[in-house]
Write a protein that binds this DNA or RNA. Structure first.
Lengths: 222, 222
DNA sequence: TATCTATTCAAGAACTTTATTGAATAGATT
DNA sequence: AATCTATTCAATAAAGTTCTTGAATAGATA
């Protein structure tokens, strides 16, 4: 094998991986799987795809070895092959927000129009936890909370929040978090909480970002 | 705009960026531009593409805002839009090497078959520079050296090395570096040096990786 | 102003990717 | 062993990507 063949080989393999990521639905699937493993049907539902279509996208990710499968009873669970997959998605996400005005505009317009408040970064949250009292609320679906959540966070899924406000303290600051910067659950939660007189803000990033930094995590085993 | 439209918008913008990276030639172009800005014709030559084809690929990268243009006299120079672009390429590269056996095999087979020696990581090189004496040789084309190189490195382009061996000390350790882990210039240099009785190894990563870590860099201004 | 030249554009053929549909499969459960 | 069911496969039409070729352009030099 000569030099050129070697280079062509390497770059074409890397392009294959990149291609497997280069689709809006597959990026959304990666973000979803970063919350924990998940059967096909749930992925299809969450991403608004048909099951057959979701399955096909998962096959593409599997062929690129970005996801692994696990059979659990009647269901087949998919999961990210390793941390590096989320890391790469994070790099792409950040590149997008920084480089592409369209993405930043989408995010800002949507957020600012409906939810006019600032968010807290992971670093800021760590300081807050160290120095003061904070109530952490995980507003993702309970199944995702169970698969892993920030230590000491309580689970109140976004669609149950209005009925469960009493569980939250009025005095201490509340930080809501969800899947990631493009997930709206936390924004909706904060809007609701503020309207009800609570002192609340959202975490800018999501649970997978917290976990990637090796910060304390808890799992609810079934 | 509702939640679903927002998500669809964001993921499809991010997928557009990812698609612009998802091609072997464009990945190679990114790696080349990470060495410093460069006119179209040189990019075409280095990547073995026709000029028209290289230009088209550059248009794709430009549309995704991953590269910027600068006119210099008669030539149009392309450059990476910012550090994050290289960062993302690096994440993809590492994901590839870690996840895809095919990539690792290609690299190992090619290297091990022709160049049977271990490489030095950036961290190890930093320590070596601190504690001992090391001669650093930049074996990339001189134009790339001029656009930026590791501090105190000397330039001996790979194709001139055999005639310029006398410039190098026989006693102190020599570390050769080039564009990155998939670049073969440094391997060839080390093979040649060892055969001639020098104590030499290659840097595993390349100059852009060194620069990304904010380690000391020099530029030869023209 | 005319010429030169690096780069881009445009059109088209070959190939790849995607969503949809309905059938097939493989592994549990009964 | 028979049935059930979550998932995958296969075929197809529509849309997108890529390389090649040769012409067009825009900005510099003369």
């Amino acid at each position: 094998m000569n030099k050129r063949q070697f280079k062509d080989g390497v770059y074409s393999e890397l392009a294959k991986i990149t291609k497997s990521l280069a689709n809006p639905h597959r990026l959304e699937i990666i973000e979803l799987l970063a919350q924990g493993d998940c059967p096909v049907e749930q992925i299809a539902e969450q991403t608004h795809l048909s099951v057959a279509n979701a399955s096909q996208h998962l096959q593409v990710l599997k062929a690129a070895q970005l996801v692994d499968v696990d059979r659990k009873g009647n269901f087949i669970h998919y999961k990210l092959a390793n941390e590096n997959v989320f890391q790469t998605w994070k790099a792409l996400r950040e590149l997008g927000v920084e480089r592409i005005a369209a993405v930043e505009k989408l995010v800002k317009d949507f957020r600012k129009s409906k939810f006019d408040f600032v968010s807290v970064t992971i670093d800021e949250l760590v300081k807050k936890i160290d120095t003061g009292r904070v109530t952490l609320v995980d507003v993702r679906p309970e199944s995702e909370y169970k698969k892993g959540h920030i230590a000491d966070a309580i689970s109140i899924p976004h669609d149950q929040l209005s009925q469960r406000l009493k569980e939250l303290p009025k005095r201490t600051e509340i930080i809501a978090y969800c899947r990631g910067p493009f997930c709206v659950f936390a924004d909706e939660a904060v809007a609701l909480l503020r309207k009800a007189g609570y002192k609340a803000s959202r975490l800018e990033e999501g649970f997978p970002d917290w976990k990637l930094q090796k910060l304390p995590v808890e799992v609810s085993v079934n």
